[in-house]
Design a binder for these strands. Structure first.
Lengths: 220, 220
DNA sequence: GGCATCCTCCATAAATCCATGGAATATTGT
DNA sequence: ACAATATTCCATGGATTTATGGAGGATGCC
């Protein structure tokens, strides 16, 4: 048999594992979801993920080692972004596989998102109804994420401002709400808020991440 | 802003991270590649991966926690298998993304496989030439992997036995060799051996893993 | 029942990872 | 040159992971 070169094999697989390790922390996965929405500075990422600045920086170094992120220096600040859509795809697939095979995920998902029976629409339905013009599409992510790229024709109002700015939305129109992706709360919260104010609001079944990966058009 | 429920969010992402952790060790990735070829007992996996039995068992428990593998008991032994093709897809995508974005991977890959200029053929070419009948397709994986599923019409001779059984291959025919997947050495070694004996041998550009994931037919 | 086999669980030591505070570095503005 | 800001680097303690032996459980064979 021989199988002499066990060292190079381990080296190759350990290199793969470096990328695996990048996916091995919940905080890093939260950072990846944020980065999938567009580039951000370390400081912004740390705040958005609820992390200590140095902790966030360390996690970003881990992601960088795996080649998952790239940086752009602009004066004194460093903007991180995903290194490619294949990284976003890997991230999305990991979550899907985890949901498919890990019993704890659906439970945690419902506990986080609130398993209300809110209606969902698919990307295709949204596109069709947007063309037909009988709905408003509402993006409830933070402004910078909306600005970095959103569904063409969507109105952008962050959830936090939605209660105050609800009058910007037409009264008689059904509202389709979306946010970052399949496991993002923002749209859930927004739909609950809108429904509480007597609006007809439904959710896109996932969000910007899946929309972009599916090759649908993005406006910036 | 509020963002009260930070606990459930962390819980959800930590659950995703459990699946991420399953990909965070080179040895576990080696086990995944083996499992992608078909089910195996703990003992067989440990031997094939060069691991202590208890270590292998522990790694398999980690994979099981992530839901990546399922088991089947048969008398005194336990057979592990991948829980679904989505797991194999995730595994394959991880390796691809690592190769795309991590500089160390191509280097480690060449060091392991030997970057000889051997010719490759695609799955489609292989299919066409197999139909045309002007080639022999050779599977050089261990017998149990060949038996668990192989390219229809392929001859199965493990690399270790190839030198002794080379006369089972027709002389005048080009030989297309394949093994487990894109990063598996077996086909590289086999092609070098065959070429050294004056045979015309080329490699399938990847292997069984990618063949199956692409939806090509598998014989068992 | 008694025994062998295969696997999992437990305990342990070494290595690694995580979060965090403080120091060091780099860039910009004065 | 100096100060201010944004980020990375470094050191530390606590938690987690890894490899490994040995004990324990389950199953099948005699």
């Amino acid at each position: 048999m021989a199988e002499v070169p066990t060292r190079p094999k381990a080296q190759l697989y350990d290199a793969f594992a470096v990328s695996g390790k990048a996916l091995a922390s919940g905080k890093r996965l939260e950072l990846l979801e944020l980065l999938a929405q567009g580039e951000r500075t370390v400081d912004a990422l740390a705040k958005a993920a609820g992390l200590n600045l140095t902790t966030a920086s360390a996690h970003l170094q881990t992601l960088k080692q795996a080649g998952f992120v790239a940086i752009r220096r602009e004066g004194v600040r460093v903007h991180y972004r995903l290194a490619g859509d294949d990284v976003a795809l890997l991230f999305a697939l990991l979550r899907k596989v985890a949901e498919n095979h890990q019993a704890a995920v659906p439970a945690a998902r419902d506990a986080y998102l609130g398993d209300d029976g809110t209606t969902e629409v698919t990307r295709e339905e949204l596109s069709a109804r947007l063309r037909a013009g009988d709905v408003v599409v509402l993006d409830v992510r933070p402004v910078e994420e909306y600005l970095a790229g959103h569904i063409p024709g969507a109105v952008g109002i962050p959830v936090g401002e939605l209660a105050d700015r609800i009058n910007e939305l037409p009264e008689d129109c059904e509202i389709i709400v979306y946010c970052r992706g399949e496991y993002c709360v923002l749209a859930y919260d927004a739909v609950r808020l809108l429904a509480g104010r007597g609006r007809r609001a439904i959710r896109l079944s996932d969000g910007m991440l899946e929309w972009r990966l599916a090759g649908f058009p993005v406006a910036a």
